[in-house]
Design a protein around this nucleic acid. Structure first.
Length: 813
RNA sequence: GCGGACGUGGUGAAAUUGGUAGACACGCCAGACUUAGGAUCUGGUGCCUAACGGUGUGAAGGUUCAAGUCCUUUCGUCCGCACCA
């Protein structure tokens, strides 16, 4: 039979579309699988990363459909976001037009890959209906104390003209354009993700069996829980006066209360209120004031790279246990955003404090004793036995921590505290192409949420995108509105939401995609959620995957749904590389999926992507291997002529020749392997494809047409998730599609009359022996010794090991 | 610095509980068919050696009848976080 990919692919894509072949059934009694790939941003064209992503999830979805599950495998569009505005500026196109045209084009591209998506559940997050429910969530969050507005320092990207969340700042630069991020005081809306810090951390344990360890660790680090002692340092008399009694103390946090007797100075962040007061009121000599001002101007990123430096503030605090006077400094390494912006410094037992103390000749006082400690050279930061620590001397670090915290709590000097690195999620963006934040500013009522019945607040179409400022802010009428509370003239909020808000709940909406009155039906969520298999790139390990986990928990607490975690199993696929580098336009090493499909067909693209590497690993592009994938399909199709039966033939296995038996064995091995990779969720399609190739090679080595028919029946079944067009075409022609349903593994084909054993001497393989399976262990050993006699001359056998079906090991001296 | 993942041929990669290392491909070599072939088919292909044989999973030890797999040490690569008190 001849292989004509473009003809059969077009044919089946049309049939699938016409028959709406992949819509899940309405019945909620069937066992279900929810298979999801991270939805695409409609950038204009799909790339090889998409091909890989969707091919993997499509194969999984198709497998479970064969196995009789009700499968939800939806796709949609993450369609708000900046590229639409950039394109608008560049091509003078409205972002909406650009976005929806891209969606139409990319939908066709995805269809050309033969992806088995649900047709009726597709939506774009920029659809007004989606915005409506999202705005409703935001208002509910506000009403339940999960969202607040606040003016504070934000990450500002000048190139993108917008605020960024902490998660979107990569090494001090914008995650999108790589421009340096500046700090700027601005009002903004924040979602209280920190309220869920502990739950987000604790529930990682429930994901251990289904998520890659790497992702769990990254989330754990990002949440960054640490436990310690928070206490107050009081200023001494002289310092109180110096600061005009405006301050009397400040708070610090430490994870090492056992080192508290080693405090020899304390340090404040340059942004600390006390530092600001000193600078504003010129309470130090001019040169020092200038130095502090210079420090304040340095960005967080540059500070991280700079040497440690500081200025003595010429004030002192009292040590809470010894009452000794301790100098207060301002230091560039103290972060304003963590632990109150102030630290107690223990140079002997903290490397950072040590460097600072060495530079400014501050005392280094040992309070943890350990033979490995060498304070002449560096700080000793591990645990040990307390010395120079008053009543706590002699205690080991672990016990001392508890005892000192207890002492502080008993004497009301401080308390045990848990700190997180996780910050609240700033969702304000000063951009046009996003979901408007549904709030109104009223001079009488302050910040007022829009009424639910007025939602959605939609974007005006008549805007000019210039890249300068927010078009909503300068729009003639968008801002003008009435206060939902008192009815007076008011101003509508012009900030739009971070696009990560949309991707935080889209997987829930697929469960009830078309309801105009509510975001989702509880019954639908109960049935379909959680996602059984989520597939996407590792780059979302923190951003999207953390936000989506949070949103699920928040919507649960708002009464919408009843689940704790959205994604039961997660597969993070590797990148697609060419010439050792990630494919990118700027490097010019991209492969165009459309061109690939028109040259070889979608099935070849799919086969190559799944065969060249296991999904979690990087995939190195290789043109001749693509050619190889194509040739395999062609060879496979060519052999269809050997099939002579419309059904699965029956056999008396014992009457077959050796080659025929071997062919059947290889075929069933492929079937077994296939079940195995889905059930263990390794999804190593490469091994299944290899097993199919072996099976085809083995079929080729014999001529029995019944064996061919059976082999073909099964191989089409195994390969259908991988190369669906080819398999539907042949299955339809040869077997009336009867083989696209579960097939029983016949164990009889794995049993041979004879077994081949390796003969190893002292663990080294020397020979092989084929024996009748009915022979006893002693008979086999004796045959093996004869066969390997050459290796046993002048030697004494001191031990004989027989591993059934595997090998014989003779230990000889 | 902290945390995680991983080191197997020329290349991509296989290898249940420890049990014949390199399956399956790509590439390469040889042959057949052919006007031709970048088509197809057949055979070969870890390294060293003419061969017998030796050797081989980053390195060094260890456990074991037997180690890619388990343990210890070490080197290297990649990724994430990073002055988090």
């Amino acid at each position: 039979m001849e292989y004509n990919p473009s003809k059969i692919e077009q044919k089946w894509q049309e049939i699938w579309h016409r028959e709406n072949a992949f819509e899940p059934k309405n019945s909620k009694d069937l066992p279900k699988k929810y298979i999801l790939s991270m939805f695409p941003y409609p950038s204009g064209r799909i790339h090889m990363g998409h091909v890989r992503n969707y091919t993997i999830s499509d194969a999984i979805a198709r497998y479970y459909r064969q196995e009789g599950f009700n499968v939800l495998h939806p796709v949609g569009w993450d369609s708000f976001g900046m590229p639409a505005e950039n394109a608008a500026i560049k091509h003078k196109l409205h972002p909406k037009k650009w976005t929806y045209e891209n969606i139409d084009y990319m939908r066709k591209e995805l269809a050309s890959l033969g992806l088995s998506f649900s047709k009726e559940r597709e939506f774009a997050t920029s659809d007004p209906l989606y915005t409506k429910f999202e705005q409703e969530f935001i208002i509910k969050m506000y009403e339940n104390g999960l969202l607040y507005e606040k003016k504070q320092n934000v990450n500002w990207c000048e190139t993108c003209h917008t605020v960024l969340a902490n998660e979107q700042v990569v090494e001090g630069c914008c995650w999108r354009c790589d421009n340096e991020v500046k700090q700027k005081q601005m009002p903004g809306y924040y979602i209280k993700i920190t309220k869920y810090a502990q739950e987000l951390l604790d529930d990682l344990k429930n994901l251990e069996s289904g998520w890659p360890k790497q992702v769990l660790t990254m989330q754990e680090n990002w949440i960054g829980r640490s436990e310690g002692l928070a206490f107050n340092l009081k200023l001494d008399e002289r310092s109180l006066e110096k600061l005009d009694h405006k301050f009397d103390s400040f708070d610090v946090f430490t994870t090492r209360p056992d080192t508290i007797y080693g405090v020899s100075y304390t340090a404040l962040a340059p942004e600390h209120e006390i530092v600001k007061y000193i600078v504003e009121n010129n309470l130090l000599e001019q040169s020092k004031i200038e130095e502090i001002k210079a420090m304040q101007k340095v960005s967080e990123k540059d500070r991280a790279l700079a040497d440690k430096e500081g200025v003595s503030l010429e004030i002192e605090v009292l040590h809470p246990l010894t009452n000794e006077k301790i100098p207060v400094w301002v230091a560039n390494f103290v972060l304003a955003s963590y632990g109150g912006g102030a630290v107690m410094a223990v140079p002997a037992h903290d490397q950072r404090d040590y460097e600072f103390a060495s530079k400014y000749n501050l005392p280094i006082k040992e309070v943890i004793s350990n033979p490995n400690s060498n304070l002449q050279k560096e700080a000793f930061t591990e645990s040990g036995v307390l010395v120079n620590s008053g009543e706590f001397n002699g205690l080991k670090s672990q016990k001392a921590k508890k005892a000192i915290i207890y002492h502080f709590e008993q004497n009301s000097l401080g308390k045990k505290e848990i700190n997180y690195k996780l910050r609240d999620w700033g969702i304000s963006r000063q951009r046009y192409w996003g979901a408007p934040i549904p709030f109104v500013h009223c001079d009488s009522c302050g910040l007022v949420p829009e009424k639910i019945e007025n939602l959605p607040i939609t974007l005006p179409d008549d805007v000019e995108i210039t890249g300068e400022g927010n078009p909503l802010d300068t729009h003639p009428s968008f801002k003008v509105c009435k206060c939902p509370k008192c009815g007076k003239e008011a101003r509508r909020e012009t900030d739009t939401m971070d696009t990560f808000v949309q991707s935080s709940w889209y997987f829930l909406r697929y469960c009830t995609p078309n309801d105009k009155n509510k975001p989702f039906e509880k019954e639908d969520i109960d049935y379909w959620m959680s996602v059984d298999q989520y597939v996407g790139g590792i780059e979302h390990a923190i951003l999207h995957l953390l936000y989506a986990r949070f949103f699920t928990k928040a919507l649960r607490d708002l009464g919408y749904i009843d689940i704790d975690e959205p994604f039961e199993n997660l597969l993070t696929q590797g990148m697609v590389l060419k010439d050792g580098a990630k494919m990118s336009k700027s490097k010019g090493n991209t492969v165009d999926p459309d061109a690939l499909i028109s040259e070889y067909g979608a099935d070849t693209a799919r086969l190559f992507t799944l065969f060249a590497a296991p999904p979690v690993k990087e995939l190195e592009w290789n043109d001749s291997a693509v050619e190889g994938a194509f040739k395999f399909i062609r060879r496979f199709v060519d052999r269809a002529d050997h099939v002579n039966s419309k059904d699965l033939p029956e056999f008396d296995h014992s009457l077959l020749s050796k080659d025929e038996k071997n062919a059947r064995k290889k075929v069933y091995e492929a079937l077994k392997k296939s079940k195995d990779i889905y059930e263990t969720r390794t999804f190593t399609f490469n091994t299944v494809i290899a097993a199919c190739m072996e099976a085809l090679n083995a079929l080729n080595a014999q001529k029995n047409s019944d064996v061919w028919s059976e082999g073909y029946y099964i191989l089409l079944h195994v390969l259908e998730p991988i190369i669906p067009h080819t398999c539907w075409e042949l299955s339809d022609k040869l077997f009336d599609r009867k083989n696209l349903k579960p097939i029983k593994i016949l164990e009889e084909v794995f049993v041979d009359d004879t077994i081949t054993l390796a003969i190893t001497i002292n663990g080294k393989k020397r020979d092989e022996i084929e024996v009748d399976k009915s022979l006893s262990k002693d008979e086999i050993l004796s045959l093996a010794k004869d066969k390997a006699s050459k290796w046993l001359e002048d030697k004494e056998i001191i031990k004989e090991i027989y591993v059934p079906n595997k090998l014989i090991n003779l230990v000889a001296k």
